[in-house]
Simulated assay, not measured.
Amino acid sequence: MRSSSGEVSGGARPPVKERPSDAASTVPKGVAQVIFQTSQWTGLIFIAGLFAGGWQFGVFGLLGTLAATVTAYLMGVAWDQVSIGLEGFCGTLTGVALALYLGANWMTAALVVGATVAGSVLTSAMGTVLKPYGLPASTGPFCVVTTVMAIGAPSFHRVWENRPDTAPPSATDPGTAMSWSDFWHGLLNGVAQVFFQDEWYVGVIFLAGLALASRFVAAVAAASSLVGLLIGWWLGAQAADIGAGLYGYNSVLTGVALAGTFIALSPVGAVYAAIGAATAAGLTAGLTNLFDVVGGHTLTWPYVLVCWVFLAAVPRYPKIRRAG
Rank of each mutant, 00 (worst) to 15 (best):
A67H: 07
A67C: 06
T69N: 01
T69M: 02
Y73L: 13
G76L: 08
V77P: 05
V77M: 12
A78F: 06
W79R: 06
W79C: 09
W79E: 04
D80W: 09
D80H: 14
D80F: 07
Q81C: 10
Q81P: 00
S83Y: 04
I84H: 12
I84R: 12
G85S: 03
G85I: 01
L86W: 04
E87C: 09
E87H: 11
E87W: 08
F89P: 00
F89R: 02
G91Q: 01
T92H: 03
L93K: 03
L93Q: 03
V96F: 07
L98R: 02
A99R: 04
A99I: 04
A99Q: 01
Y101K: 14
L102N: 05
A104C: 01
A104K: 07
N105Q: 06
W106S: 13
M107W: 13
T108S: 02
A110W: 08
L111N: 01
V113Y: 04
G114K: 04
T116D: 00
T116E: 03
A118G: 06
G119S: 04
G119A: 00
S120N: 00
V121G: 12
T123K: 06
T123A: 10
T123Y: 02
S124H: 10
A125M: 11
A125G: 11
M126C: 14
M126V: 13
T128H: 13
T128G: 11
T128A: 15
T128S: 14
V129I: 14
V129H: 08
L130I: 05
L130Y: 00
P132A: 02
G134F: 05
P136M: 01
S138V: 00
T139E: 05
P141K: 05
C143R: 02
V144Y: 03
V144P: 00
V145M: 04
T146K: 00
T146S: 08
A150F: 14
I151V: 15
I151W: 14
G152S: 08
G152H: 06
G152D: 04
H157C: 09
V159C: 07
V159S: 08
R163V: 09
P164S: 10
D165G: 07
T166P: 11
A167L: 12
P169R: 13
S170L: 04
A171T: 14
A171G: 09
T172W: 06
D173C: 11
G175S: 11
T176N: 15
A177T: 15
M178Y: 10
M178E: 14
M178P: 11
W180P: 06
W180V: 15
S181N: 15
S181Q: 15
D182F: 09
W184Q: 13
G190H: 03
A192Y: 05
Q193G: 07
Q193W: 08
V194Y: 02
V194D: 06
V194R: 08
V194F: 05
F195L: 12
F196D: 04
F196K: 01
Q197S: 07
Q197P: 10
D198N: 15
D198A: 14
D198M: 13
E199W: 12
E199M: 13
W200P: 08
Y201E: 12
Y201D: 11
Y201A: 11
V202F: 10
V204C: 10
V204N: 08
I205W: 05
A208V: 13
G209Q: 05
L210G: 05
A211Q: 02
